[in-house]
Design a protein around this nucleic acid. Sequence first.
DNA 1: TAAAATGCATGT
DNA 2: CATGCATTTTAC
Length: 650
Amino acid sequence: MRVARVVVDVPLAHLDRPFDYTVPEELADDVVAGCRVRVRFAGRLVDGVVLDVGTTTEHTGKLAPLAKVVSGEPVLTPEVAELARVVADRYAGSLTDVLRLALPPRRGAPEKRPVGESPALPGPPDPAGFARYPTGPEFLEAIALGRPVRAVWTALPGEDWPARLVELCRAALSGGRGALVVVPDGKDLDRLAAAAALELPKDAVAVLRADSAPDTRYGRFLSVSRGTAQVVLGTRAAMFAPVRDLGLVVVWDDGDDLHAEPRAPYPHTRDVLVQRAHLAGCSAVVAATARTAEAALLVESGWAHELVADRAVLRSAAPRVQALGADSELARDPAARTARLPSLAFRVAREALAAGAPVLVQVPRAGYAPGLVCDRCRAPARCRHCAGPLGVASAPSPGGQRVAACRWCARPAATFDCPHCHGTKLRASVVGSARTAEELGRAFPGAAVRGSGRGSVLATGEAGPAVVVATPGAEPVVEGGYGAALLLDSWALLGRPDLRAAEETLRRWLNAAALVRPAGAGGQVVLAADASHPVAQALVRWDPAGLAARELADRRELGFPPVTRLAALSASPAGLAEFLELLRLPPGADVLGPVPEPPRPGHEAGERYLVRVPRADGVALARALADVQGVRSARKAPEHVRVQLDPTEL
DNA sequence: TAAAATGCATGT
DNA sequence: CATGCATTTTAC
């Protein structure tokens, strides 16, 4: 008798385990590990995936037969099945939830098409592309030889990073191994795919994007699972692509919040790929122009090496960066009108335009919730009890005064003493306006003004003299680089009541400044921020590693991820009370809250708790949370509690 | 949406 | 306190 172990597609947490079914004689030929089936489960017909096929069962009762084989196509490989289980455990979610993210919806037509032929392997890449990084060429060679190597690669300003990432893929492919690169958005994927077309056999590459037509999406997935395409380039969902003989995983710009999956169990591209490299024993590259605290931890812990250029090489590639002085009007008020735009910014922009080069103006995105900062030094204000960010309480206190309170533990901050400058007054951080930039554009008569942001993102711009106004992440790439960039998105970013505000601010500045030509070719950047601020300093010195190390040290001091592991629990007060009642936390766990949580789309307003444990107890925490989900789902608790581990936004 | 377990009124 | 029928629970 053959027995199929099946993951059934039901959302109940206490049923997060495989169920055994007998394989009826007439289906025996079609059933293979990884194929999709339909089974009768508690009376109803449900979808499922076969994990594997054996001859024994642990189940003491009678086994039901498989009802139907949807398709004999093995869409779930053993490697991805194992990865999905590890990811589910890490994020206190269910295997079914992860498989929903990992497997694209089945389509009949692409399955009928014959299996393509694997193209011939290319030779190793030209090591010259990585010659500016001292350990670059040997790193490429190690990948080509199939030696697992791991690096945090900090790309030089102006680097043709799509070309470099394709060279990494080519190195893996030349050794007969597959490669997987995940980028934040479609614009980056277009650039990467274009670079791949120049360097790799066409059929060896599959480009996986979320917005493709369903047939296209499934067809490309099949070209990967069937082994035709051994190089996968994609956005977030591609992190689970079933690449054959995986030799290399790469995440580009891991600080971009698009790498955080918004559906349960909320996995992050970088974390999943790091896990995957671990399980597959393959090479891994965490690549960006900037650096996250998480990447810094990978370096600090010795998991990854740094792949960085020497200081002298960096200096010759970077534009000249000038921050405004502390007394500057614009540094204090980014909403300052064009009439008050400092002469430095004017002069730099005019010089670039006169030289026939485009000028990039980075402006804030609308809609940041203002946080509270020290009135004197503008450092974000933190709670003295749990070091969470302070905000203005949504309801005025009985006395009619709006009071500052912690957004994490809800304790009011009656008094304030800034740990940096010992200021005692608070102020709301300024929220900037895109209008400033439009006005600014008009200040340069004769130059064309183009906008790129919400709704209409330009992928590339023209090389001529024009003013390009863009929000962070939407900056068009121009041939030859910008002559100048004005970064007006300063305090709106830095003052955000967010754990990652400093890191995220530098990331956005660096990504924009990296599009400017080197100082030697006249490239200049003007930053509308106080030159003495550490983040402004990091940009002026072009030191993403330094800031990331500092951020990591701060988080260690304050007890934040990635040094700790943090879970956010959201639901109604009653749901949370029941959840916490059942929760058996590892010793040393720290419960913060509750704080009120505004309604999200599809959810009522509720409350949120944060649970924090030392990093070493992360597994135990996730396990405890998943156990509670199981118990509550088994007793048919009326309300779902959302559990999010290490959420990106805090 | 099928079978098993449980609840409950009814008649002796 | 057995019986028949309805409702709830399980989950292979």
